[in-house]
Each structure stands twice: as C-alpha cells, then as structure tokens.
Design a protein around this nucleic acid. Structure first.
Length: 101
DNA sequence: AAATTGACGGATC
DNA sequence: GGATCCGCCAATT
C-alpha cells in the first residue's frame, strides 16, 4: 500500500453531501503538502467509478477548471444531487459540506 | 536514474 | 486585491 492507495481510501470514505479538499486528504494521508500528489493520483484515478473524486475540491471549494470528469457543470450536478450546497460563486459551500474526519 | 510534469496550497510581489 | 512564484509529493517518460 502506498500514499496513493491511502488517498483513494480516504476519498472513498467521504459521505454523500460532503466534500473534502486536496490539502485535507493529503494531511490525512500523511503530508498536507502532498496536495499535488493527491490531485495527480485522483487525476489518474485508476479506481474511477469507485472513488468519488468529484467530492474532492480545492481549498476554496472550487474544482479544477477544465479537468472535470464528465465536463464542466457535471460536478456541480453530482454534488448537488448528493446534497452539497453551492454558492453563487459556483463553489462548494465549505462551511456546510466540508468533511470533518 | 534523472528530469519533467501535474485535479494544489500557501506565500510573496 | 489580484497575479505570480515557489515548494511539496508522487508518477510518467
């Protein structure tokens, strides 16, 4: 098992209606600065379909613009369908949906 | 094995 | 306040 697997495990543990940030996951995985590695791992996402990468967002609550899986706007629908609140800014309402381990 | 890159985050200019 | 730079980790080439 490696850092990558731990990331997938953590992301998979995010309940519906809540989101987490790359930094948060990286911190749980062992290093808060590994946010890049987390993003990279999720980008590859060999477990796509099992790991809800759409629940992982920036610290700001925003997602990678242009790298969204099904296309721009899909992520918002997915999270909205799960009960995640969005702001008028198009970002996730962190104060309400931020996953606390 | 080394260099480059890539869904980030924080700090600085 | 906005834009830019640097730093970290892991994976790919």
């Amino acid at each position: 098992m490696s850092f990558n697997d731990r990331v997938y495990e953590i992301v998979c543990q995010i309940p519906e209606g809540q989101v987490s940030t790359y930094g948060q996951i990286a911190s749980l995985a062992g290093s808060w600065r590994a946010s890049r590695a987390v993003g990279y791992a999720l980008h590859r996402n060999p477990y796509q379909g099992k790991v809800p990468c759409h629940r992982v967002v920036f610290q700001d609550g925003r997602l990678a613009k242009g790298f969204v899986f099904g296309g721009p706007g899909v992520q918002r629908q997915l999270l909205e369908a799960e009960g995640v609140t969005f702001t008028a800014d198009g970002t996730v309402d962190m104060k309400t949906c931020r996953w606390k381990p």
